[in-house]
Structure formats: structure tokens, C-alpha cells
């Protein structure tokens, strides 16, 4: 693909993006690129640098080195032009509690320089789009979590941005509100907007076109969900994944821990996901498990991917640390 083409199809790009706070490196040499009109999911444990990365793309934080590029513009050099075309929803609810939803929307619309005659129409559109009708009149502080998030999204959308940065948009809201918010996000994608989302929920990650995983300030992997699940690290040679279902989970887990062929065992509600070596047969496993257990072959889940990546990275970090001493 030619450079000019890349410019046209890439919405967000980072090249060697680094941010230090004193001796702490919060983001360490991150490279990534997000295609226009796609939804990009950024995952990683708390404190791994997700928010710092987003804040650099939004121009809230200057990178120590490297370039954050949004819509072909270097955020460091043209912050105002970038701000006009991006929306940002921060981790915790950050609108004005004592203003009503409508007043919050009006404020942000005017902050983005919407002319007054277009303002009323645009606010109507945004309220309609986010399903906020009837919820613009009470003070923002009195709304429940899900409605607060919708209002925050509406405020981030009020200037019709091309790119939206959402920092854990669904943290702390109920499943129904969560689903409603994601339906909305997909509608925005359908309109051609680009979304950059951080999350801790695997089901949300599963919905993204593209995923990246950051751990200890570094970007470990980057690809589509199916690409990540097919990574060799996640599917070590001569192993396979099986799921065991039983009503006696605790007993099953205790027994499996003593089985030499079981490399990983993780409980998921009523089932246990296992990584076993090829030498271990289903029959051999069933003999080990409670009577009611059943087995089924499974593909690695995203959670498997990230647990594996984290374990490998922290083991590597520990060796490095040991080598230094």
C-alpha cells in the first residue's frame, strides 16, 4: 500500500510512542495503527498504560518521544485541529453534575464552536441517536450509571467527530446498559466513524475488529481476534484445549491439579477450561474427573490469549530483572 493510500485509510497511528513520569515509563515504544471505520480494542491490566496512551492521542499529555498521529495530523503539532475531529470519553464520569443533560450538551456544543442556529438541530440529533430523550432535563449528577455514560457519549459526539476515544466506557454499568451502549457503538461504526476503546471485558474485546494488548507499558500483541487466538504462544505445539463440564467443579479442579498432562486449568462458571498435552487422552482425563464430567474440544478464547501473554511477559520481566542483579 502506498503512503498516500495509508494516509487515507488509517485513522490513528503511533510510532514509538513513549511517555515517562520521572523514572517510571508508563508507555514504552508503542507502535500501532487503526484502520478508518473500524473498532479497535485496547486491553491490558490496570496501570499498564492504556489511559496514558489515550491521553496522548487526545493531546492531554505530551509524549516523551514518538508521534501520536490522528487522521494524518501530528497531535503534538496541531492539537486544535485534532481536537475538532475527535471525541473523548474518560474513564470516570466527567460531566458537570450540577448541570442538566441538556445544559451539558449545550456547553460542549458551544465549546466545539457549533454555530447557534445549528446547535438546536444538532442537539436534537444527538439526543435521538443516543436515546437520551426524556433524560436531558434532570441534573446529570442524579442520573444512574448507564444514563450517565450515554450522556457522556452524547457530549463526546456533539461535534460529530470522525474518531472516538472511549476509556473503559462500560466500567461499572449494568449488563443491559452495557449491551445498549455497544449497540450504539456499532451504529457509529456503521456511520463510518473510527472507535478506539479500552476494556476489561472479553466479550467486548470479541466484538472489536482489531485488538492490542498492553502489559507493563509495552504493546505485546496486535491483531484481529482470530489472529490472536491462532498465535503460536497461545497454541503451543503438541497441546490441545478441552473443556470439562461437571457439577463438582471444586473436586474436579483439585484432582486435575495433580494430573501431569494438564498444563493449565481455569474455572469458568460450570466448566473448567484445560490446556493438556497431546499425550493425555480424553479417556485418561475422564478417569481422573468426577463421574458426571463430560469433555469437549474447544478453541482458545481471548481470555486464554491474554492470560498466556501476561504469564509469558511477566516471566520474561522477572528473568530480565534477575539478570540485572
Amino acid at each position: 500500500m502506498s503512503v498516500a493510500n495509508a494516509e487515507r485509510t488509517t485513522a490513528i497511528e503511533a510510532r514509538g510512542l513513549t511517555r515517562r513520569f520521572g523514572s517510571l515509563v508508563a508507555v514504552d515504544g508503542v507502535d500501532l495503527s487503526v484502520r478508518k471505520g473500524s473498532i479497535f480494542g485496547l486491553l491490558g491490566p490496570n496501570g499498564s498504560g492504556k489511559s496514558t496512551l489515550i491521553r496522548m492521542f487526545c493531546g492531554l499529555l505530551r509524549p516523551s518521544s514518538g508521534a501520536p498521529i490522528v487522521l494524518g495530523l501530528d497531535v503534538r503539532r496541531r492539537p486544535v485541529q485534532v481536537r475538532r475531529r475527535i471525541g473523548y470519553m474518560s474513564q470516570r464520569f466527567s460531566l458537570y453534575d450540577e448541570l442538566t443533560g441538556h445544559e451539558n450538551l449545550t456547553f460542549f456544543a458551544r465549546a466545539y464552536g457549533l454555530p447557534r442556529r445549528r446547535l438546536t438541530r444538532r442537539l436534537g440529533e444527538v439526543v435521538e441517536r443516543t436515546g437520551l430523550s426524556g433524560y436531558e432535563t434532570p441534573r446529570a449528577g442524579t442520573l444512574s450509571g448507564g444514563w450517565k455514560q450515554r450522556l457522556a457519549l452524547a457530549c463526546a459526539l456533539v461535534h460529530d467527530p470522525d474518531v472516538l476515544f472511549l476509556d473503559e466506557p462500560t466500567a461499572g454499568i449494568d449488563p443491559v446498559a452495557r449491551r445498549a451502549l455497544w449497540t450504539l457503538l456499532f451504529e457509529l461504526i456503521a456511520e463510518g466513524k473510527t472507535l478506539f476503546v479500552t476494556t476489561h471485558y472479553m466479550d467486548e474485546a470479541e466484538r472489536c475488529d482489531h485488538l492490542a494488548y498492553v502489559y507493563l507499558s509495552k504493546l505485546l500483541v496486535n491483531g484481529t481476534p482470530s489472529e490472536l487466538k491462532a498465535l503460536p504462544d497461545v497454541n503451543p505445539p503438541d497441546t490441545r484445549r478441552v473443556e470439562a463440564r461437571t457439577n463438582r467443579i471444586q473436586e474436579a479442579l483439585r484432582r486435575l491439579e495433580t494430573h501431569p498432562g494438564v498444563l493449565e486449568a481455569t474455572v469458568f462458571g460450570e466448566s473448567i477450561r484445560l490446556l493438556v498435552d497431546d499425550a493425555t487422552t480424553n479417556r485418561g482425563l475422564l478417569a481422573f474427573l468426577p463421574d458426571d464430567a463430560t469433555l469437549a474440544a474447544i478453541r482458545p478464547s481471548l481470555e486464554d490469549v491474554f492470560v498466556t501473554m501476561t504469564q509469558r511477559a511477566s516471566a520474561a520481566a522477572a528473568t530480565q530483572e534477575g539478570a540485572k542483579r
Partner: peptide
């Protein structure tokens, strides 16, 4: 303190 500062700073204001 209330986190509204960032929201304000991402606008072109």
C-alpha cells in the same frame, strides 16, 4: 478533582 478538566481540555477551547 471532579475529572471534568480533561473533558474540557479535549475541546478546542
Amino acid at each position: 478533582e471532579r475529572g471534568t478538566f480533561d473533558q474540557l481540555m479535549v475541546t478546542p477551547v
